[in-house]
Structures are given as C-alpha cells and as structure tokens.
Design a protein around this nucleic acid. Sequence first.
DNA 1: CTACGTTATGGTAGCGCTACCATCTACCTC
DNA 2: GAGGTAGATGGTAGCGCTACCATAACGTAG
Lengths: 342, 342
Amino acid sequence: MTKPRSRRGGGRPTIADVARKAGVGAITVSRALREPERVSEDLRRLIQAAVDELGYLPDPNARALASARAEVFGVLVPSLTNSVFAEVLRGIYDSLSDSSYRIQLGNTHYSGLEEERLLQVFGPQRPAALIVAGIDQTPTSRRLLETAGCPVVQVMETGPDPVDMMVGFSHFDGGKAATEHMIEMGYRRIGFIGARMDPRSQRRLAGYRAAMEAAGLFDARLVTTTPVPSSVTLGRELFRDALAKVPTLDGVFCNNDDIALGVLFECHRASIAVPKTIGITGFNDLDMMEVAFPSVTSVRTPRYEIGRRSVAMALAAIAGKRPQEPVVDLGFDLKCRESTAR
Amino acid sequence: MTKPRSRRGGGRPTIADVARKAGVGAITVSRALREPERVSEDLRRLIQAAVDELGYLPDPNARALASARAEVFGVLVPSLTNSVFAEVLRGIYDSLSDSSYRIQLGNTHYSGLEEERLLQVFGPQRPAALIVAGIDQTPTSRRLLETAGCPVVQVMETGPDPVDMMVGFSHFDGGKAATEHMIEMGYRRIGFIGARMDPRSQRRLAGYRAAMEAAGLFDARLVTTTPVPSSVTLGRELFRDALAKVPTLDGVFCNNDDIALGVLFECHRASIAVPKTIGITGFNDLDMMEVAFPSVTSVRTPRYEIGRRSVAMALAAIAGKRPQEPVVDLGFDLKCRESTAR
DNA sequence: CTACGTTATGGTAGCGCTACCATCTACCTC
DNA sequence: GAGGTAGATGGTAGCGCTACCATAACGTAG
C-alpha cells in the first residue's frame, strides 16, 4: 500500500527521498544545499552522500515558488546579430557560468513596446536580477523595472538617474573624440554616416556635431542617416549618397564599424584613396578593423567588460553589498589607424 | 481577522483573487486562460474582465510546478559571437515572440563537458523543448537529451540517428560544392584554411578533400588548420602560413567567411590580385561578402531558416503533431562572385 | 542551580497553480 | 420516462520546495 511515487512528477527523487535516506528532516537537506555553514559537518556529509547516491537535483520550479525568487538572470538586448551585444552577452555568460543562475534572454528589436512586453513576461517569474541594454526605457518599462523587486543594471551607456545601477560609457564623448581626431588629422569636410539611429547612435551624432561646431566645421548636409537597420551593404549605399550630396567630402565618421567597412569597400571599388582622399573612422572597434586594409580607425568600446561588470554588480547587490557608486563609466579607447593617417 | 494577504508572495493577485471576483472556481479561471474553448463564452468574458481589472498575471513558477512543465525553450549554442549562431537564434526568437514561451540560452563554448553541465541545469526545470546545435553530443549529453521528456531538435547539420528531430544541411556537401566550383573555374593548387575545426568544420574539410581527390589535386600540404577560435585576424595569419608553405597556391577555400575576409585583406595588403593570382571562397555567406571588394564567393547557409524551422517542428511536436520526416535538410546555395571569377 | 542566550535541527503550513475526479445540467435515444 | 452521453463547472489534493516558528541541547552568566 505504498502511495504511488509521485503521480505527476515522473519519479525523480525529491528532497524528501534524500531526507529519508539520510535520516534527517527535509528542511535540513534544504539548508545543507543552500547554506551549508548552518549545518553540522557530520550531517552535511551524510546528506551529500544521499544526494549523490540518489542523483538528486533540486527542482528549480518548486524552489522558485517556495522562495518567491527564481535563480534566473533576465537579460534584454535590442539585437542578437549586432556583434556589440553579442560580446556583452559573452561577458554576462562567462561571469555566470560558475553559478547556478540560468539566463533568460529577450530580444527587444530596438522597440520600447517589445521591451515592455518582455518585462511583463520576465517579471512574474521573479528573476534574481535584470540586465537591460540602454537607458531610454519607456515610462512603463521604467516602472516595471523599479517594481521588479530585484537588482537592475542598465548597460551600454551611462547617464543620470539610473533605475538602480548602470555600467557603460559616454557615446557622446566617443563620437566627439573620434571627430576631434579626424579634425586634428587635417580633415575638414567630415561626414557623419549612421544607420538605425537608436538613442546611442543619436548621442554619437551629437558628439560629432559638438566637435564639428567647436571647430566651425558643422554643416547639416554632412550628416547622412537612416532609421534602417545597420549593415555593411547599407554603409556602402549611404556613403554613395553622402558623396553625391557633398562631392567635396574628405572624411566620414561612421556610426559603427559595419558602416565603416561598407565605406571602405566602396572606396576600393571606386578607387578612392584611403586615407588620402577620404578618411574613415568607425565605432566599436571590432576585431576586423585592425586587420582591414587599410586598417580602420575606430573607437574601442568595453563591451565584454560591460557584461562582466554588470553581473558582478548584480551579484553584489543580491548578496546585499550594493556598490558605493551605482553608475560605472568604463570609458572607451580611440584606436588611431591607417584609415585616418593622412 | 482576514488572513494577511500572501505572507511571502508580495501581494500580487492570484488565481483565487480572480476566481472570487468573477464568482467562479479557481480551476475555471485556470481553464479560461489555458484552454478558452473549454469554457463558456459568458464565463470567459466575466473572467477576462476580472483578470484585466486586477492586472492578474499567472505565476510561471507555480504553473511549472503544478503541471511539471515549464514554458521555456532551452537553447544551446557553442558560441554567442559567431554570427552564424546569432542568426539561428534570431530565427528562434522571431518564431517564439508571439508565444508565451521564454527562452533560456546556454553557451557551450564548443565544449562537450559544458554542454553536459548545461543540460543538467536545464533538465530539472522540465523545459517545453530543447534546441541544441550540432549532432556530435557526448554519450552523456545524448542520454540527457533522450530522457529530457520533451521534443529535442538538433540544428545546423543533418545526419543519421537523430535524438528526436533535426534541421540543417550537409557541411560535407557544402565544402565539396565550393571546392568543385573553384576547380571548375580553373584553380588547381587550392588550399583549405580553417580555424576552430569543430565537427562541422571537419566535415567541410572532408568535402574539400573529396572534391580535390576526385580531381586528382589533393595534397596534404594544401591544408592549413588550427584549433584556435576563428577570427579575421587569424585568417590573415593562416593565409600567410599557407602561402609560405605552398608558394604556388592559386586559391583558398576558407572554413568560414571571417577567415576569407582575413585572406582578402591580406591579399590587398600584399598586392596579390584577387581573383587572378588567388581565388577565394568563404562559407556561410555573411551579408558583407557580397559588398566586399572584390565580392567574395561563399556558400550561403540557411541559418535564420534553421532557427525558424526548428521552433516550428518543436511546437508541432508539443502539440502532438510530430512531423512525418524528423530530419529536414534545408540545403545551401553556392554564391559565385568576383573572388573566383578568373 | 536557574535563567537565558546560542546553535542545530525539525514540524507545519503554505507558495500559486493544475491534474484528477466528481458533479451537475442539458439533450438525446430508444 | 429511464438510461446514456457530452459538455461545463467545481472540489480536493497535491507538485517539491522553503519561510517561519518551535524545540532541544548545550553552554555561560549570575
């Protein structure tokens, strides 16, 4: 008359099985697994033996329900194919692979509405932490983040008024530094070429504009942008447009490296000398920019490090040790290469 | 003397609150939400009104515990930065964004051991489906997949003996087709350049070798590989090595497009004419291959479609409608471009 | 020797949902 | 009109864990 083992559960061992085998209470097994220091050495060993013998693995769903907290990091990025976010993700994953946290990834497609929807999906699950790209959440998203009841890290940028914590750098300063470098190298009719034009791109453009205006070089006709998603192909096309608009163009600051690569290829194709006739600067400094011919000047951004740091801050907050300074600026690094070496 | 609302839960509305407000049983609310067709029109409306008014959102953890099934797709890829997998992921995400499934992503770093660890983490959660890259799982991983109790889709390749279902294409055939094309275009001393050399790269190499041997052109010295992770930089270096080893080299079939791009840049830098002196073929056909100068011949692989199809098959299996044919070969498409147009 | 922390362990009562089975009401069928 | 069937609804009993509180055992102070 033994009660049928676990009608629904499929028969894998539960904490009660372990407790029985070890001759202790279920709660002690639970403790031994989560806070070993609160259980005596002897019992701990006994319980570990039972766990090993039965092949017991705690049920994360039951755990989450009972403790009102899932061992899950929710991560929201605007794009999966943009290698910039891929590197942030890599940093996040590498920092979390030793822990028992799972990662739930959402793709917002650069849409505030989609971000809201995903936060609504993530929220009820009570994640351990949320990492979101960008600082321009909609009011609804912001409220959802504020009421999530877990640490929140906004990544990629820094800015005033964090929801909770922030790790990133100033895109405005990056755009400004890149442009100033080109001016310094003697370029004058420097175009800005940008696609997608998400908030970060906008701030890079603002940095470009500030530098150009400070040098008395700004001209609205130098700016060529489109809301269309960025790609190498698009870089080529936008460059053609820019050149048609301003034939005297002598340099371009590209919104990102994909665009810059498109420009570079088009220069090859049209036999335009780089850096002599046209100077090129990219943004992000993907691996290939250094290898390209000529090598391309770019603003190196700490993507991987942003991922790592965001997890470190979240874990600290979970452990109750909130960082002194909730906003971390990791800076950037202008890599001057052949494409602007006039 | 009302009992304190939800000591632990934080006070958000539960299914019982909705049931009370709508004047029905809790189970009817549950049904109205999950199988609306089994509840009468009237009650459905009543319940929906109560749900909206209270802002009720079901607790996914409680749901998962009670039903022994989480609304989660577990996805395992070997790399986050390799844009090939990024596109597969994009396909998966796009196919799942209308559903209530969450996605839990694991990064195996091309390691069988890490794959095992991740499957061990994913398993106890009882995911609705598992999508894993590759068909060369370790025996342990294979057993974990077989006993996961949910649909499993192996993606990127096809092969005999699927765990459950498969969507991909033949890397061997792809490598063979690319090599045959180069032979046809008149190249003779065609090198193979490959990095990482995961199982799929190995099969592309095997395809290359088969084509070369069939033409009586194979020479072991033509093959240059390394287990080091692939990158554009590495492409350049391996090409230099290959050229030093076989100065009469007149073409290269590259393991992937990153390598091909590195080769192309090095040719520019060393003033080697492409396609005249050296022909180049890549693999995957990333967006930029068409834009490169000269444009680069490559094997277009249906990455995005693999992602979409894998989800479609998994969802069908969840719904009890297993596809007739569990192995789907999506093929590939050789894109002949300037880099091999001798 | 009593009072009182302090530490180690356990029992009970949920967490919020759904599987399972029971019930109840039409609506047939013969 | 008895019996059967299908469809709609609800009650009960968990799912496997942990929060909370109780208890026991052991010092240590007064």
